[in-house]
Design a protein around this nucleic acid. Sequence first.
DNA 1: AATTTGACCGAGG
DNA 2: TCCTCGGCCAAAT
Length: 112
Amino acid sequence: MKEFYEKVYKIVSKIPYGKVTTYGLIGEYIGVKSSARMVGYAMNHSHQLNIPAHRVVNRKGLLTGKHHFATPSLMKELLENEGLEVENDQIVNFKNHLWDPKSLDNKNLSSI
DNA sequence: AATTTGACCGAGG
DNA sequence: TCCTCGGCCAAAT
């Protein structure tokens, strides 16, 4: 079931600059809707990979995974560096910066 | 081998 | 928004 991780990494890698997404959306896109936990677990194993894990937050826009970065402030720094606003470990205007993996399909389906 | 825990989510109160 | 509960599956102990 390593494909699961591969998919997670793939999607996370496709998150546009300055955008964020949630574990639930990723899980939903992969197909394991109610296993958002696995997405987070996969992220935990993504330390050595070059994926923007800082663009993945929980549904509230809370930086729940910041403790797994090199430094707790790194996640916030990266997000702010991308033009986002982080306050009290939470993304400001979260919905405004939210990116849905399904938007990839929408591009492909735009011909329909 | 069994139990607990985890970068979670949704529903109900 | 906060609390609790059930679900989900893998890794750690």
